[in-house]
Design a protein around this nucleic acid. Structure first.
Length: 400
DNA sequence: TCTGGGGTCCTAGGACCC
DNA sequence: TCTGGGGTCCTAGGACCC
């Protein structure tokens, strides 16, 4: 089964607002959850069914959404609340089985095969948990039932909200093959354009084509694509949540920046964020990647593999300054980000010729002390003096 | 007041090695 | 009697997802 919250951010904000005595349910109005336009984050994060009916799409600018739907009201996101609702949902489901794979903040897969003998017919079970979620948590979900994850995921998307759909092997031809090619999970804008060009317009068209036909355009992905179109997927429901492969933090600046001093300040603040999260996970990183977006939305990045894994803000900051210097040519910058990759659980530090063991130990102790101060008194309690001028960036999430 | 942020996976080219 | 082949690692970028 694939369980998917309907219009998650909007539904969850609706629950939050109703709890606070807000006058009406925003799910039944022309409403979206949207970022702050003043800080250039003005995009649609979630939309109500009525807003959708007016053509409003997730990811588009609020400016454009209002043009389509003048009655639109926008509400700010409340990520802490969303995390709480997400946790509540997964806890409710965990009562029935531990075979749950959390796929995103508002989606999961549940391996019903292993507990079917306990709870009986899958459709009736889906109805039961769907109602329980609505009655106890106050929002609706869609549930897809199938013999594999791909088909369950496709099924939960069929018609919304508050629906249960099945997509067994015998139903793939009838329920999935007529859909436009872009509806297939994993086929985005670029791939569906390429496929349409070679005459493949529906999922059924893809299901009945040959690997040879696709190969010039999709190379080694060809067979996988055809399998997916035929509803074939052998992947397992993995409940033992794997560790993160990477940590990233990026921020869109309030104004395009051309000053190196300012970019350094932003980098330092972001280094703080990612390093703090890295240490929280007891990890060390081997790869640091700095990502920029210029005024024309051109994105580019440079990365560096470290000789020694690290979790020190100072070292991450130093490397990210090096990477910025390497790629930045003075163009106005809209977004700055850092991504950490390739983690290890030990640092195995090889002290360089110009650094003493004592000096590095001091750095480690210093950062550990800063962490515990922040843990105890909050993130704003202490920072490097160079950040006092600059505005605090990023860091919205708190996983504590 | 125009265009978010956090992820995963894949590819292709160059360096380097045997 | 011009210039292999296979492999790994590193880097940059792209596609796609929520």
């Amino acid at each position: 089964m694939h369980i998917d919250v309907n219009n998650a951010f909007l539904s969850w904000s609706a629950v939050d607002l109703l709890n606070q005595g807000f006058g009406y349910d925003i799910r039944d109005s022309y409403a979206v959850i949207g970022g702050d336009e003043k800080t250039r984050r003005g995009v649609v994060l979630a939309k109500s069914p009525l807003a959708k009916k007016m053509g409003v799409q997730t990811g588009e600018t609020l400016y454009s959404a209002r043009k389509k739907c003048p009655a639109l009201r926008t509400f700010p996101p409340n990520y802490l609340w969303y995390q709480k609702m997400s946790k509540n949902l997964f806890q409710l489901l965990s009562k029935y089985t531990c075979d749950i794979e959390v796929f995103s903040i508002d989606e999961c897969f549940l391996d019903y095969g292993k507990v079917q003998s306990l709870y009986g017919d899958s459709y009736l079970f889906a109805q039961k948990i769907k109602d329980e979620i609505e009655n106890t948590l106050g929002f609706t979900v869609n549930i897809g039932i199938a013999n594999n994850k791909l088909c369950a995921k496709m099924a939960s998307d069929f018609s919304k909200p508050n629906q249960i759909h099945t997509l067994y092997e015998t139903e793939v031809r009838e329920k999935m093959h007529p859909l436009p090619i872009g509806d297939l999970f994993g086929v985005g804008k670029k791939s569906s354009e390429k496929l349409k060009k070679i005459g493949i317009k529906t999922i059924g068209d893809l299901a009945h084509t040959t690997p040879e036909h696709l190969y010039p355009y999709f190379k080694n992905q060809s067979i996988k694509l055809i399998e997916m179109a035929n509803g074939i997927d052998m992947s397992e429901v993995i409940s033992t949540k794997e560790e993160n492969k990477g940590i990233s933090n990026s921020t869109t600046l309030e104004k395009d920046v051309t000053s190196k001093v300012e970019l350094y300040q932003v980098l330092e603040s972001i280094s703080n964020n990612v390093a703090l999260e890295l240490r929280r996970q007891n990890k060390y990183t081997c790869v640091i990647c700095v990502q920029l977006k210029d005024q024309y939305f051109r994105s580019y990045s440079h990365q560096k593999k470290l000789k020694n894994a690290t979790n020190l803000t100072k070292e991450i900051f130093e490397t990210s300054k090096f990477l910025l210097d390497e790629m930045w040519e003075g163009e106005p910058i809209r977004l700055v980000g850092i991504r950490l990759d390739h983690f290890t659980s030990t640092s195995l530090h090889q002290v360089s010729l110009f650094e003493t063991v004592e000096k590095r130990d001091q750095d480690v102790t210093l950062e550990r002390t800063l962490d515990s101060l922040k843990e105890k008194y909050g993130h704003r309690v202490i920072d490097t003096a160079s950040l006092l001028d600059g505005k605090k960036v990023g860091f919205k999430k708190s996983r504590h």
